[in-house]
Design a binder for these strands. Structure first.
Lengths: 148, 148
DNA sequence: TTAAATAGTTAAACAATTGAACAATTTGAA
DNA sequence: TTCAAATTGTTCAATTGTTTAACTATTTAA
């Protein structure tokens, strides 16, 4: 049993790195001017409607100054805009511009096709099970981060 | 059925990004001076015993010049060494130094503990199934890359 | 034999990231 | 109520990973 766990870990480390790297490389082809990380930031803001730097830094597990740099580039590209809102005058809200929304909707289409091509080589049940476990891992990781 | 696939894609995009980011952030704590990417390069060379720049560039899906930059840093850190060998005098072989091997073995221990903490919250069967599907995805991605 | 292909490097540019220092603002305890 | 501590976001300098184009050295093949 011990040996098997070791092998699981070994296989997991190898395959997770590979899939991430190769997946990112494939996605990049669909993203024009926008980088892989920027795409995920745009996605996140779009799904939230609006969010703050601190929230992004928490979600993406990076420093706030990294978020400042990224959002600067996205503002320069006309994809997002900063706005003051709410009672707390320290807080700056981030939201997609019309251009940003248009771009994201178009791009999601292409990315979806890519992921779909990948997924339809698996059975419905296998996908369901895979994603469920993946989601469990996300929660476990978050707990591990908090208990540190 | 159509709608479900859409939801799978959405869930997959969200969760894969999160797990990668957070997993990398947790791992980084165990890696002293070495970066996340450098760790995977060291791992790969160690498992192979020896390899070339071109091979690394293929496996990691990046340009050869990116590999040159990374290996330069690893040579500066004393973790790997370049050697000429074989008949083809263009080829430069990369292998771990003694220091590199020592470091990797120690670090693998810590990383294994981390991954183990994560995995032991799942059942044996669930891990097995998850990794199997993950490995299928790696193969599918490689095929998609070739057919392009 | 020589033109094309291959292995690796270099240099310039950009993106992502960290850490430390900072300004503006809010919160909370004495 | 007041003032020290905490929070939000920014700036700056440094490091790393990456791409593209141009280049050198070497091998392959027509």
């Amino acid at each position: 049993m011990e040996g098997s766990i070791q092998q699981f870990i070994e296989r997991y480390l190898s395959v997770s790195f590979l899939v991430n790297k190769r997946g990112a490389a494939l996605m990049k082809c669909e993203l024009d001017d926008v980088t892989h990380d920027q795409y995920y930031v745009l996605r996140y803001i779009y799904k939230r409607g609006m969010c703050t730097s601190t929230e992004l830094a928490d979600v993406f597990a990076v420093n706030k100054s990294a978020i400042t740099a990224m959002t600067n580039r996205l503002v320069e590209k006309g994809m997002i805009e900063r706005g003051k809102d709410g009672d707390d005058r320290r807080v700056i809200s981030l939201s997609l511009t019309e251009k940003g929304k248009m771009w994201l909707i178009e791009t999601e289409q292409k990315v979806y096709e890519l992921v779909q091509t990948m997924m339809t080589k698996l059975s419905y049940e296998e996908i369901e099970q895979f994603i469920q476990t993946y989601e469990k891992l996300a929660i476990i990781l978050q707990e591990m981060e908090e208990n540190k």
